[in-house]
Design a protein around this nucleic acid. Sequence first.
RNA 1: CGGGAUGUAGCGCAGCUUGGUAGCGCACCGUGUUCGGGUCGCGGGGGUCGCAAGUUCAAAUCUUGUCAUCCCGACCA
Length: 577
Amino acid sequence: MRMSKLFVQTLREYPSDAEVISHKLLVRAGYIRKLANGIYNYLPLMQRVLKKVEDIVREEMDNAGAQELLMPFVQPAELWQESGRWDVYGKELMRLKDRHSREMCLGPTHEEVITSIAREGIHSYKQLPVNLYQIQSKFRDEIRPRFGLLRGREFIMKDAYSFDADEEGLDKSYNIMAEAYKRIFERCGLETKMVQSDSGAIGGSVSHEFMVLVNENAENNAGENDVFYCTKCGYSANSNHAVSVLNPVETDGHFDSAKIVDTPDTHSIEELSKFLNIPQSVICKCLIYVVDGKYIAALIRGDRTIEETKLMNAFQGNDIRIARNDEIEEIMTNSGYTAVAGFIGPKGLKNVELIADETVKDLKNFVIGINQNDKHLIGANWGVDVELPQKITDIRLVEENDRCIDCGASLKVTKGIEVGNIFKLGTKYSKAMNAAFTDKDGQEKPFIMGCYGIGITRTAAAAVERHHDEYGIKWPLAIAPFTVIVVPVSDQDEIQMKVAEDIYNKLLNANVEVLIDDRAERAGVKLKDADLIGIPYRITVGKTIKDNLIEFKNRSNGETETITPDEAVRRIIEIIK
RNA sequence: CGGGAUGUAGCGCAGCUUGGUAGCGCACCGUGUUCGGGUCGCGGGGGUCGCAAGUUCAAAUCUUGUCAUCCCGACCA
């Protein structure tokens, strides 16, 4: 490809609306252009990268025994009503109506459609297992799209779905996918960590995410997930799912007796602990949440934080948020109190479900709100002064240096970009949608399903996050839009141009994806652009051509060598083998 | 949806306080110059100042409304 013909416009400056480096670089280097909020045009260079990623995914999926198909982007509401998700998926699902007022949606994921395909096509255990996948645009009307391709509303995803006759088969399918995923990301030049995670809105039990770990200290960190991991035994989990063993702390307030004391203006645990001169860990914190419209009072030890996904799951909810002040007021009024946030306690709350984190169980002579402003109860004990909620479970956020549940070592935390995700769905969709096969024993059974996603666009963006420098992108070879760029330093110099063209043609003939910068630009412009665009190898034809020498540069490690044009061609051909 | 900010040429920005001919850099077109890290000069094209109403002789500038975008929280590949 000739630079003079390539449709690409590099910018002198970063776009003002970009925050993270992959977004900045992809726009500036002419890979993408925003069309609307969270919706991007993939320009020719980007399309080449995406194709590379897709082809790696295809190869590994095919090798893993999966078959590619393509499902419609527009889906009828009926299917979603069958699965029950039409009502629970929320605003993220882009809904629309056709000319007959029939309700449709733009597919954010395809469990419903694939399940309908399976129920029409698979009738016998003899046809199982089956794994079907597609690579397609998805639409999710995200509350807040951001970070360029890392969180778009429309994005490209590979989604695969497995159908098995039993749990054992699912385990097998699941492991095959996990292995394929490891290879896919490795081939894309991305080191990933497979971590345990919450299964979220898609449903199911077991799930893992593939995280690209990003340096926490980096400016404008694009990692949206906290990953807790154990350096000793390898345990790792998304913060929404991580569990831990706590380090011992003081849980006895050592108050002689229970009494109500004045604690003016102590709206936070920190203020309260300072005022009473006690550790935060002898305070019982009470927070009001709204889960699917129901009020929940959640108790947790003062020094710990609630993990909202865990709390939501404890009530099998789909939606959670902290209660607004007017909602707290409503609860207080209904319960005959007037307290504001900061002084709330579980005692006497009406129309509020109670839940406690395990951390509050062992508290003795502790401090707790009693729904009176500027007052707290000190020296409280469960069963004497306050009843311990019946529902007790783990709803806390793990913290760094908590101990590993498996081996007891100290846990660390890092940020991660989730590029892939695998779920054991079980029979959630097959049961709801009546998708079944006849098993060996002649009985009709629902399919045991799994689903497996890879964000194609996100993977490409994550690669930029991981591989760049101050000059631009440093694409991993396997997903680079071109392997090599040939740069004649001066378009005025006939010999340079001739040698450059010669190298270009030899590489073309050897099926190398090669760019030649034949533009009438100065050297500086061409070299800056080559770095910005991030082509892995650069062959610069300059003055030294009089000695039959060119410069051969490796973009990723910056190493340059002075070698002959023929040697350069040979090297490149060797590299792509 | 809550909190904060911003909308002026394709991109990056100034002008707005104190109303009066819409500017700069990059990019683009012409021309000369230069030629291994975004040369330099001359000439040129391109903007209903997000949109709508209002105030005024006069609005990019003041007022109100509205839309959009970005950042922080809930979502997820």
